[in-house]
């Protein structure tokens, strides 16, 4: 009896601890979601109102007056485009880096992660201007690929390292070329790794602010830029800002929830192996 009671007490205490440490990470997001349905007066009301008559006015403003639908589309095009292209050039590279120990190339690709993003901006602008690519999606997609591609290579090198070499050898015995073995045997077995890598590449592109700040124009404006412009413009309408925040954060969160397993793997990859 005593033990059970104490066990229960300990359990409650422990659950409370979990709540105390976990809750702060979600509360601000819940607050943002609620604020997006509030009027300006309700938002600044203290103590915060937890129960209120929701209004859709903020979303109306975001989508109808500010054209967020278009920015949503732009962000999607750029995120999907840069992820797919990064996969296309990143996967074969990751494969040979893993199989032939091309460490120098590997290190170079990883260096891209260390560089301060701002140092790219002026050279890029000059480069893209010479190529006449400034007001196109191409330049933005290419810039986002510089974040996505190294990520994909980094994750996939680790993944390919874990696949036994015998796989390709067996395929080659069956008459496959090496590249045939890569496409028909290795890639199909790498589904989870590719999922992890591409989810992360997509998220990083989706959230990127700095590159879009300099490289995008009206036609290619992405969401992070749109929400930033929204604030400093005319007056601060906090409800609308929060609605815009929901529009931009929600897809990232939904994607994360669907691919949760892969995201965790990707973010913790490499660290655990040491």
């Amino acid at each position: 009896m005593m033990d059970e009671k104490q066990g229960l007490k300990a359990k409650i205490f422990w659950y409370l601890m979990v709540l105390m440490f976990i809750l702060p990470f979600v509360l601000p997001l819940i607050w943002i979601l609620m604020a997006s349905f509030k009027t300006q007066a309700q938002i600044v009301a203290m103590p915060p109102e937890w129960i209120f008559a929701p209004t859709l006015a903020n979303y109306k403003r975001v989508f109808i007056e500010q054209n967020f639908g278009k920015f949503l589309l732009n962000s999607s095009i750029i995120a999907v485009g840069s992820t797919v292209l990064s996969l296309i050039i990143g996967l074969p590279a990751a494969y040979t880096i893993s199989r032939y120990k091309q460490n120098i190339l590997g290190i170079f690709i990883l260096l891209a992660r260390l560089m301060p993003g701002i140092s790219y901006l002026i050279p890029w602008f000059i480069l893209f201007s010479k190529l006449r690519l400034v007001d196109t999606f191409t330049s933005l997609i290419a810039s986002h690929m510089l974040v996505g591609m190294p990520l994909i290579v980094w994750i996939m090198v680790n993944y390919f390292d874990g696949l036994p070499k015998e796989l390709e050898e067996a395929a080659q015995v069956d008459g496959c070329t090496l590249q045939g073995a890569f496409f028909r045997v290795v890639l199909p077995l790498s589904g989870p790794g590719i999922m992890t890598a591409s989810t992360l590449a997509f998220l990083f592109s989706w959230n990127n602010f700095m590159f879009s700040l300099v490289l995008s124009v009206e036609q290619t404006k992405t969401l992070p830029l749109a929400i930033y412009g929204f604030v400093s413009y005319a007056e601060v309408s906090w409800g609308s800002v929060m609605a815009a925040a929901v529009v931009i954060i929600a897809p990232a969160i939904i994607l994360t929830m669907i691919f949760q397993r892969y995201v965790i793997k990707g973010l913790t990859m490499g660290a655990v192996k040491g």
Partner: peptide
Amino acid sequence: TEFTSNAS
């Protein structure tokens, strides 16, 4: 940046 690049 656009004008600097001379390709505006």
